[in-house]
């Protein structure tokens, strides 16, 4: 009996924190999303109005689409950059360079999200370093990139390339080099080695990174708010408008739950895909 009871007791503080700071607020948000804000108080009748509102108003749906589109574009571009990086790091770099590379990839995690976004805003603004550099080379019209959707994408990609590189790298380094030797030995050239051995075996890392990138992009408010110029709002910005301008917490909660549902769905799909890919 004593043996059975003690482990449960040890778990208690963690579970209590979890319930207090995660389960309860979430429950409150779900509950609230079924009521309507009326001035300073909540309406008295439970209703689906907030959800109906969300799915019937074009600007909410547009925001949803903007979020999904942003997620896909950011994920796609980040993957295109991160995969070759991770590949070089795991197959063509010495142990020292690998350590340096991983450190560099971790750097963005140590800087504040807000500071990073503002740095990009300054770098991309008309007087910023990027614009000046691009201008002096006459390479491409980077002038005016600040406060555009492109700036949001740049800010996101900068961060997620690092994240994706790490997840992909962790998959790539785990591929035994003998697999590649075996494939070459059996007559495979580089394209075949890549498409038939390396790519399929790196899929768990790719999927995990893609899932994280997509879900985190979907859920981020700071980057689009600081960099995006506000001409195409994503869902998180619409949620914040509901909170800050309207004080409409039930509507914000309803939108947030839609966002959560999408994120959970993506995570579940990714988990299935990962377990399938690494089976």
């Amino acid at each position: 009996m004593r043996k059975g009871l003690w482990p449960t007791l040890y778990l208690f503080p963690a579970s209590a924190l979890f319930v207090l700071f995660f389960v309860l607020p979430l429950a409150a948000m779900i509950w609230m999303s079924f009521y309507q804000q009326q001035g300073f108080v909540l309406g008295t009748e439970a209703t689906l109005a907030n959800y109906l509102n969300f799915f019937s108003k074009p600007y909410y749906l547009q925001a949803l689409w903007n979020s999904l589109w942003m997620g896909m574009v950011v994920t796609g571009i980040s993957l295109l950059i991160a995969y070759p990086l991770a590949y070089i790091l795991s197959f063509h770099a010495s142990a020292t360079w690998q350590r340096i590379g991983i450190m560099v990839c971790m750097l963005p995690f140590w800087t504040s999200y807000v500071v990073r976004s503002y740095s990009w805003l300054l770098a991309l603004s008309n007087n910023g370093v990027v614009s000046q550099a691009a201008d002096s080379i006459g390479f491409f019209p980077a002038v005016g990139l600040a406060n555009t959707t492109a700036a949001t994408i740049i800010g996101f990609v900068h961060f997620f390339v690092m994240l994706l590189s790490l997840t992909i790298f962790s998959s790539l380094v785990r591929i035994p080099r003998s697999y590649i030797r075996a494939a070459q030995d059996l007559g495979a050239g580089w394209p075949s080695v890549f498409t038939r051995i390396i790519w399929p075996l790196s899929l768990p890392g790719v999927i995990a990174g893609v899932m994280l990138t997509f879900v985190l992009t979907l859920g981020d408010y700071v980057t689009p708010q600081i960099l995006g110029g506000g001409k195409e709002l994503v869902l998180t910005q619409v949620i914040m408008l509901q909170v800050q301008r309207q004080g409409n917490f039930p509507m914000a909660g309803a939108i947030n739950l839609v966002l959560m549902a999408i994120s959970i769905a993506v995570t579940l799909i990714a988990n299935r895909a990962i377990s399938k890919a690494s089976r």
């Binding site: 805003l121 603004s125 008309n126 406060n147 708010q225 600081i226 110029g229 506000g230 001409k231």
Partner: peptide, 23 residues
């Protein structure tokens, strides 16, 4: 007006845009 505008933003955003010469 939107067609002519570079961006929409909250106070820090429009302030930064003006200060950095973006608008």
């Amino acid at each position: 007006l939107k067609a002519n505008a570079k961006l929409f933003g909250d106070i820090p955003t429009v302030q930064t845009a003006l200060a950095t010469g973006d608008v």
